[in-house]
């Protein structure tokens, strides 16, 4: 039986790991630190604002992870053209994560799927709750409203070749108050590809809710605060006891 996944999302600013919660650099990270975990998958995202860093620094991060960590690696942030994707795959990413560029030019998704297969394309959707109800997709580091609903955009992304959807509740990021289950559930019900939930996990029970109530195939956390070697094992023990089928 396919196991549910526990995914670590790491964000980098100019090649330095940042905790998104307060946008502070965290120099504690080492590769060994990641390799030793029983994490099921790693997502690395470049959150360097345009013009404020060297792309090469992030590429070096991807290269190091790919060469040393024998777990699946997805990489994203700032990918705009197939050449950017080719570069990322060339240095060891298994999948790429696209967001704003796919909103501006949805055919980008198809181009990647045709070259690398649909399983290679993860479309990340940043969503915020609207005052009048429902949710809206935001682009450009969650700063620009798009008028799209997460369900509709997810469906279009899948039609165009997305293999997975990473749904992020922007307002929950770093809150530790739990995932936005309603948001993820709406997206998971709208598409038939795996959906990864991100934003707000603060305790192991939130993972259970993500799988059970939001129908996520994978739960993600970005706050590396939790992620010492024992933390992942502890989370997995908790999930196993809760009846979630997960890799030990």
């Amino acid at each position: 039986m396919l196991r549910k996944r526990l995914v670590t999302v790491l964000t980098f600013n100019d090649g330095v790991l940042f905790r998104t919660k307060d946008f502070l650099p965290d120099y504690r990270y080492t590769l060994n630190f990641v390799d030793a975990w029983s994490v099921d998958e790693i997502v690395v995202l470049d959150v360097t604002r345009p013009g404020s860093g060297q792309r090469a620094n992030f590429l070096e991060v991807v290269r190091r992870f790919a060469g040393k960590c024998f777990v699946p690696l997805a990489a994203g942030g700032g990918l705009r053209h197939l050449d950017d994707v080719r570069e990322m795959m060339g240095i060891g990413a298994d999948k790429v994560v696209v967001n704003s560029a796919a909103i501006r030019r949805p055919e980008f998704i198809t181009e990647i799927a045709r070259a690398y297969g649909a399983q290679c394309v993860v479309v990340c959707i940043d969503a915020r709750k609207r005052a009048e109800g429902g949710y809206e997709v935001f682009a450009d580091f969650a700063s620009s409203p798009t008028g799209l609903t997460p369900e509709n955009w997810a469906q279009e992304a899948v039609r165009r070749g997305a293999g997975e959807i990473l749904i992020q509740a922007v307002d929950r990021d770093g809150s530790l108050e739990g995932y936005d289950l309603e948001l993820c559930r709406a997206v998971a019900d709208a598409v038939d590809v795996p959906v990864l939930i991100l934003g707000g996990a603060g305790q192991w029970q939130h993972f259970v809710e993500g799988f059970r109530e939001a129908r996520a195939s994978a739960v993600c956390t970005q706050n590396i605060y939790h992620f010492t070697e024992t933390a992942i094992k502890s989370a997995k023990t908790f999930l196993t006891k809760a009846g979630i089928e997960i890799r030990p």
Binding site: M1, L2, R3, K4, R5, D40, E41, A118, Q119, G163, E164, D192, V193, P194, S217, A218, R247
Partner: peptide
């Protein structure tokens, strides 16, 4: 209920 692609760890 099983989604495609098949992504993850399996026996």
């Amino acid at each position: 209920n099983l989604r495609v692609p098949h992504v993850g760890w399996n026996e």
